[in-house]
Design a protein around this nucleic acid. Structure first.
Lengths: 230, 230, 230, 230
DNA sequence: CATGAATGAGGATTCATTCAT
DNA sequence: AATGAATGAATCCTCATTCAT
């Protein structure tokens, strides 16, 4: 009955501890089974408690799942260090893509649940996770906007489309991993995605950054000559 | 009650017609409910037949769903005109992206079923839809390879990553539509995605394609003039 | 459409031919699947006809099965040559046991259907197969009665019990074969069963009850006399 | 409606009690209906519970049926007192036959389920009931082997065949009862079967194999002596 | 705080049988 | 004579949720 025994699982936990334990087990279960095959019975078994106890702390299976998602997101957001805004644009983008690949890869089932289930819920917008999700999106948007302001990004791009591309691409890539199709590393993917987003895939004709000043000088000369010939 | 009335649905249909009708109704149902909430009972009701009849023609609910997906894909593939390979690279990419956006938007539930359910099926690779799906992927890859060969595409890009980006982006965009977030048109999305994939988002310093020869000529003149003036 | 073509199955058969064909296929099916797993759909498929056609000739699945059993029994009875009543008792018993082993082994599913299904049917006694079955039982009984009359069989045995033993033993033995437990041949089984039924399993202590002492006495006298005469 | 009434069946039972009650009701139902017509819905109704409750305690209908069979067998085996091995051979055989007749007669449907269903199951050999069944067979075999060793049984009999005969005969006899054919008592059957197995049915002709010639010689001598004495 | 017995509204699937053509 | 489309009642089984203890 002592709580110090290593093998003894305490029967009675404080509400907070119990909730935490359930959420932790639920996340594992969700990860392994996916939302559809997530059974409350299996969850109870893993926690070593009865199903009834789960309902003491969570209103419903769905509610539990939502809390799992929110908790996951919370960690994700906490982990996000202020993010050095002084870094070069490309580097910032790479970091955020790498981060997203990592997190999504760690919880693809949660991602899927969020994307295809929660987001379709009419009540989605009133969920905490909606706000959390916006924050992540905002992080990407921020980088893009900064890039825009700094002249690193073309003025004609649509921030939302780019964000969708990045996120969609990341998720797709993760599922590709999961299907065992890819032996590519996260780092590799992150670099690849960043690269394409930043530079595109087209051959950059003559990239003659240095031509401009030359041209300008020549034009001056031409002007002068024009004056001469007059 | 008369059998001659135009509005009266015939009780007995030929096998082909019945199958077609079931598939059609099934597709609607899948579209409305999603695969998980797709009930054979509701399908039967919509067709005005008994559930038993469904099982006369389809081995199982899942089998039916697969056939729906395959039929949908079939149409998609048939619709694909030979695709003019003489078109400029960007145009070809735009076409294929537009096409995919359209099709996925028309059947997002099917897409989801395909992506998160069928693809996870161990038997996936032996399904017809696997081949069909490969064909679509190959279509995109083909364009990219052609671009590569024609020098329109950077040599250092990874075709698979680009393909994943394109497909992932498309799917994500569609879910964005479905959530009612987007007031953007398919055409707009297609252009945006194509644009970013092709050109990237970075500012292209002076894209001076035509400038180069001019500059060179002017320099020669300048040099001469410089000599003169000396 | 000619009936002479080897590969062409005639579409339309006379009623008798059709019935015969169905019965034949039904017997095979029953043999392979057992009564419980006997499906009318599979039967129709094997006959190359529709299920509806079966119901043209048979009132119900059960009725069909009964006819199969009856037909089977009919053949069995026909095959039974008058049976030489002059043979020794043991030989007659052996023959009938061998015969029964053979027939039951050839159609164990039918036997089981008959025993555990038909016989439990309240209407059993009014079926033709009831009469047929009685005839077989009568065959065994006849042998036993003849043996009784001829003094080959103990007067205190109960014919019905013996008959049950024989038939029960035969059926049990067959199921033992079917479970792959036995590598014993029918002939071997027949001999074994006959042997035990006829002789029992007890050691027959030279049952010479009254003779032995007499003989021994006579031998003593003989010995003496022999000495005298020498 | 009061919960204090003595006739009120308690709604909630402990797991063990509930399981026991279900098993008990299941046995009755199996007895009455046979395995094929055993419906989980009817069982639930009889227990006054929902079908779901049954599935709380049993993985499947078949699993439940197996447990019923095993429990039945368990009782049978427990009931088997050490069995006095000092009894005469015939008596031991009679006891075991009587016992088997009793038990099988008490649960013929279970017997049938065991014999024609479970035994055909590929997993049969890994079931507990397989071991239990072996034990019973071993009991019979033991008696026969003891008889063999003690010289009570002929050396040329096959133990397995005899065992099959005994068991087959018992089962057959029980079905005969069930069909209402038999007005014979279990005791009568047991005696009859034992009798035939032990003694066979043949008249035991004074087996005088070697005595005969001796007798004949003696008779000749006697004849001669008769002449002398004349 | 915790249990765990019980639920019950479905869920997919089966298959002998019917009957309009 | 034959078809084959259609049936529908029946069957096993699932699982989130409740509530008496």
């Amino acid at each position: 009955m002592s709580t110090t025994g290593p093998a003894t699982k305490p029967r009675r936990l404080s509400k907070d501890n119990r909730v935490a334990e359930i959420l932790k087990a639920a996340r594992s279960l969700l990860r392994e089974r996916g939302a559809e095959a997530f059974l409350t019975s299996e969850l109870a078994e893993r926690c070593g408690i009865s199903e009834g106890t789960i309902y003491k702390y969570f209103a419903s299976r769905r509610d539990l799942l939502i809390q799992v998602a929110e908790e996951w997101f919370e960690e994700f957001l906490e982990d996000e260090h202020p993010h050095d805004r002084e870094l070069p644009f490309r580097e910032r983008l790479l970091q955020v893509i790498r981060k997203n690949l990592t997190i999504i890869r760690s919880e693809p089932s949660l991602t899927r649940f969020l994307l295809s289930d929660l987001r379709a819920d009419p009540a989605y917008r009133s969920m905490r996770i909606y706000q959390q999700n916006r924050q992540v999106a905002k992080g990407i948007s921020q980088i893009l906007e900064d890039g825009l302001r700094d002249g690193a990004v073309r003025a004609d791009i649509q921030i939302r489309t780019v964000r969708n591309m990045i996120q969609g691409c990341i998720e797709y890539q993760v599922w590709s991993y999961l299907r065992g199709e890819g032996d590519i590393s996260i780092e590799h993917s992150a670099q690849g995605i960043t690269d394409i987003v930043v530079r595109g895939i087209a051959v950059e004709a003559d990239k003659p950054s240095e031509l401009a000043p030359v041209v300008r000088r020549l034009e001056a000369i031409a002007d002068r000559l024009s004056g001469l010939g007059a």
